[in-house]
Structure formats: C-alpha cells, structure tokens
Design a protein around this nucleic acid. Sequence first.
DNA 1: TACGGTAGAGAACGATCGTTCTCAGCGCAA
DNA 2: TTGCGCTGAGAACGATCGTTCTCTACCGTA
Lengths: 193, 193
Amino acid sequence: MTSGRTADDELRERLVEAADDLFYARGIQAVGMDAVREAAGVSLKKIYALVGSKDELVVAVLRRRARALQEALEASADRAGDARAKVLSVFDFLDAWFCEPGFRGCGFINAFGELGSTTPAVADAVRRQKAAFREFVTELVVAAGGTPQAAVQIALLAEGAQTTAAISGDPHVAREAGAAAATLLDAATPATV
Amino acid sequence: MTSGRTADDELRERLVEAADDLFYARGIQAVGMDAVREAAGVSLKKIYALVGSKDELVVAVLRRRARALQEALEASADRAGDARAKVLSVFDFLDAWFCEPGFRGCGFINAFGELGSTTPAVADAVRRQKAAFREFVTELVVAAGGTPQAAVQIALLAEGAQTTAAISGDPHVAREAGAAAATLLDAATPATV
DNA sequence: TACGGTAGAGAACGATCGTTCTCAGCGCAA
DNA sequence: TTGCGCTGAGAACGATCGTTCTCTACCGTA
C-alpha cells in the first residue's frame, strides 16, 4: 500500500515537514541544518542526498506549503454554499487558520522578506504561490458575478489580513477582511433582484 | 548650527541609515556587521559604542524607518484636499513608494517575518509601528465620516498592497487598493446629498 | 615639552553554520 | 563463508559571524 512511494519518499516527506515546522516557527536562517537533522531524525548525509542543499530544502518546504494551502482553500470553497459564499469562504479559512496555535503569518511572505532578494529560487516559489492564490480568488469572484478588478482587491484584503493578524496578534482581522470583501463583491456585482 | 547634535549623533545617524539600506535590500541576517562598518565608514569599536549590539542596531533602524514613514504619510495627507482625499492620499503615497527603485516591500513586515519570533525587541518595534499606522488611518477615516471598522478594512488594504507589490513586482496594486478603499469608505459614509 | 590616559581601528577570538569527508557496517555475490 | 562495494552517521572542515581585545595615536594637563 505504498502506491509507488519508496522509503526515500517517506524520508523526504518527514524531512520537509520537520524543516517546515522549524522554518515557520523561527525564521529560515535561524534554523541550522543540525536542528533540522535532529527534528527529522534523518542524518546530514541523507539530507543532502535527498535535497542537495539548504536552499533546495527551503524551496521544497515552500512547494509543500503551497500545495497544502491550495488544497485547504479548495476544500473550504467546496464546503461553501453558493458562489458568493465560496468567495467569502477564503476568509472563513483564514479565520480558522489565524486562531491556530503557532500561527506566525504567511510562510511565503516571511520567506520572501528574509530571503527574497538573495535567493532567486525562493523568490520564484513565493511568486508562483501568490499568483496561484490570485488566480484561485479570481475564479471564485468571476463565478460569483464579480469583476477581475474586484478579485484583485479581495486578494489584497486576504494578504493584508495575514500580516496584520501575525503582527497584531488579533486573530479576528479575518472577519474584518471578510466583511470588506463582501462589501467589495456586492459593489462589483450587479444586483439580480 | 548643530542644535544640540554632537559628532556622535551624526555618526549614529550615518550608521543607522547605512544599516537601514543594507538590511532592507538584503535581509537583516544576510548583512554582517563588517558590511555595515564598511557602508557607514564607522569602525566596529565605535559602532558597538553607539548601539551596543546588532539587535539594538536593528531596533534603531526600525524606529528611524517608522518616523520617516509617519512623516511622509502626514505630509501626503497635508497635501490632500478634503477629508476623503486625505484618506486616499495613503494610497497615493504607497503608489509613489512602490514605483521607487529598490522597493522591497514593507521593512517592518520583512523584519517581523525574519526575526519576529526570536527577537522580542524587533517584534515590539514592528507592532508599535503598525499600531501607529492603524491609528493614523483611523483618524483620517473618522474625520472623513467613516467608521473605525472601515478604517481597519482600509488599513488591511494598505498592508496587503505592500506585500503584493513587493512579491508580484506590480507597482500599480496601490491604485487597486486605493479604489477598493474608496468603495469601502463610501459604503461606510452616510451620503450627504 | 613630556607623560599619562582615553578613545578608537581593525585583527582576532570563540561560536555557529553549510557542506564534505572519513570510517564503519551491512548486504550481496562469488 | 569471505571479500568487496556501497550507503549512511556524524565529526570535521573551512567560512562567516557578532563581539571583544590589543595596540596605537592623539589630546590634555602639568
């Protein structure tokens, strides 16, 4: 029941997950490879055999986090009722996420701020995730009868909510952002009465 | 014509400005004290006499940046016409800032993402600046007849615009954010016709 | 004019880091 | 059963870092 997964695949998954936890909690450069080795229970020799370098580990972490986020957002949208509710489900998801212990803002924004100008592969991975998020929001907004411009604005609210929640420690900014998103969506959607 | 400024004050100003440029361009941990020494033209001995430690230098940089931002926002608001225009002047300011060469997002968000969980003094300095910004926006919005809730939402747009512009490289997100802010402000302000 | 004290330059110290190298153990084949 | 080759653990290497220490030079006072 391994469906093509080798022992190395499982080691890599354990490694990337352990690194993700540490990088997200403390910042990437504050975490040495020895700490990753200890948290993952994988030797340095094996780590470098699996990922090649610390930079490649960071990129693998960002990719894993991007997939998890996309899946969670899609699951949240799937649970929502009509098209308008699907748009606002983004903020329901953020609301739940911000209240989680260990929440420390957007891992992509943090990584970009720390390494974005010195590590092109990190900058690229972050740009891709943000482009995917914007596209996801645009699809939802357009499906709800809104405009691409409204989608951009709603995505900006979601981005602003993430850094504000992390810095202020107020997890309820997602609700404020959601309320603003509802206002913008309704303003951009012709009434259908 | 020194108005109480000593040679040390001027050295400190030069030091903090040089450090600010380097930290903002590359990330704080990517810049060693030797690079700061070279850029500022101040010896290490003198640097440690002036600021005490690298962490204190970082905090001094954040405080300097906070003052500069507050002054620029206030100057932009002063130049605006009526109360509503003053609210939107925030986005005019952001629009101009995002187009500057060397723009790399919000220095506070970057610093928080990198050091916020390991250096309490950095986290505190960032929280104070964001609280001051929110208060500034609230004053403008309330003066324009809007609600504190609208102010929170407008501040979220400004925050979202900063990270989005940095990551996407699109400097015009400030205009989109401004348009959204106008919509939210108008929706929160009773019509006075 | 000379001596003593203080301030400051930058080399050096001790620590940490990313990555590699050495050695040992295990597995497979003859 | 033995020998060889390959994989992997973690110590070590070389580099970088924040901070301190040593030495020199300058200034002030007697």
